[in-house]
Nucleic acid binder design. Structure first.
Lengths: 255, 255
DNA sequence: CGCGACCTTGAAGAACGTCAATGGTCGTGG
DNA sequence: CCACGACCATTGACGTTCTTCAAGGTCGCG
């Protein structure tokens, strides 16, 4: 069972990973009203064309943003971990230009726009932190543009795995050298812009070189340094605060 | 000669293209102190790693954001037209994670961060407009992810040209069916994630099908509808205000 | 046991990259 | 005025990466 405070803890931890929050601001964030909901795999949190009046905080699980092309192919544009608010932008862009989907059974907390707006108006530091969060999002999109535009399939795979691991570690949902990675090869293909078959071959190469292990739902990184080199991964674009975070998924085993 | 007000006019027009500004807000924007500077082709406005204390408004010309890979290849991540503030994000992300380059002789107006911050603090509507602007930016990055990840070279070319034309029209720097397009095929390749040679062949196909004309510095769209279909272009992601804007580059010929 | 979802493999073909050469245009200096 | 060089566009030939199609194979679950 998820206890009611978790959504706030997650959000605070996420924001602290990219900015400095005062104790006051953190306390203020805890006043946000949330409505928890559990969503199954393949469900959508919001869809392109929607005009949401609330946004969501991911508490447990794994989400992605994606866009469908007229041909019916899907491009995943970002991956989201606990603490993320993947539809925060709906606060200012009324019509969704993409969808947010569920990649693994997830718990999300919905927060009314008015509550966020009100809080931001009363706490400029929170408004700034949220703005900063959307800017980091944009930085990640830029890096995905580079990944898709300038790197081979092999490099893309390595890069994407580094990104997920770093993000997981930053919010304390990783183990020492592994993290949740509930993507099918089909979904990986949709994120990397390559076919499923080629994803398979790419992963095999990464495995063969002893850089990673990848089982159904878990990514283990055998050699982070080599993986980063292989994927030309440089974490600067994540704009993480110093202080890597204590691993061990303490958050989960925490009563 | 550029008259001093131009930078503000450009910015206001740009913000009006994506949001509603009150007369007061527009007036407040005019109080921003600006320092004009003309930059030659291939110069950089800011570079990755910089910690700017000011940001810039493009007044005349054409800028791009780009990221260099360790291999020395360049990926262009966005194109910018007059009125844009391509480094607005530096207001909240202190270290630049990418560079902003000049694609054609340009005039930019520099504005100190403190001035923007101060204005935003005193005018919440302006803060929101700027936030919204960065969110539209992010939406454009997402679309580029789709363009690079899910479309063929031919589609990418068509899509990119539609985007530039729509953006130009929205801020009044287009003619009826043409706009400035000062990209070499090399630069187009860096933006589309393909080689120069393949850019050439792609453009020839677009020309052969009578969708566009492309001379040194100018893009003419012969059949916007077909071009949009070819590029799977749907302008929703630009989040433009209704009311397309009066073409004719009135801004330039205006004394 | 059998079905569905996922992973894996091989073979053939399309899309795109690389290499190398040619030609065009434009500004500059003689 | 012309020659020159720099930069850019264009073309052909050939190689690589990635896609597509098709066929198993594995695993969990009803």
């Amino acid at each position: 069972m998820i206890e009611p405070r978790s959504a706030h803890d997650r959000l605070i931890k996420k924001l602290q990973s990219i900015t400095n929050l005062s104790r006051d601001d953190a306390q203020a964030l805890r006043t946000l009203p949330t409505a928890l909901k559990t969503l199954e795999e393949n469900a959508d949190v919001v869809r392109e064309g929607d005009r949401p009046s609330q946004c969501c905080i991911l508490v447990e699980g794994f989400l992605c943003r994606y866009i469908m092309t007229p041909r019916g192919t899907r491009q995943i544009t970002s991956l989201h971990l606990p603490g993320d608010m993947p539809d925060l932008q709906s606060l200012h862009l009324d019509v969704m230009d993409h969808s947010v989907g569920v990649m693994a059974r997830s718990t999300v907390a919905f927060v009314p726009h008015v509550a966020v707006r009100d809080l931001a108006a009363r706490h400029p530091a929170i408004a700034n932190a949220l703005w900063r969060d959307t800017l980091v999002d944009a930085a990640i999109f830029r890096e995905w543009v580079v990944n898709l535009g300038a790197r081979s399939a092999y490099q893309r795979g390595a890069h994407l795995m580094c990104e997920v691991f770093y993000k997981a570690r930053a919010v304390g949902v990783s183990a020492r050298n592994s993290c949740a990675f509930p993507l099918t090869q089909q979904e990986l293909g949709d994120a990397m812009g390559i076919s499923t078959v080629h994803v398979n071959r790419t992963i095999q190469k990464l495995r063969g070189e002893k850089l990673i292990t990848l089982s159904r739902d878990r990514l283990t990184i055998l050699d982070l340094k080599k993986l980063a080199v292989a994927g030309e991964f440089n974490p600067n674009y994540l704009h993480l605060n110093r202080r890597p975070a204590h691993h061990a998924e303490a958050f989960n085993t925490f009563h």
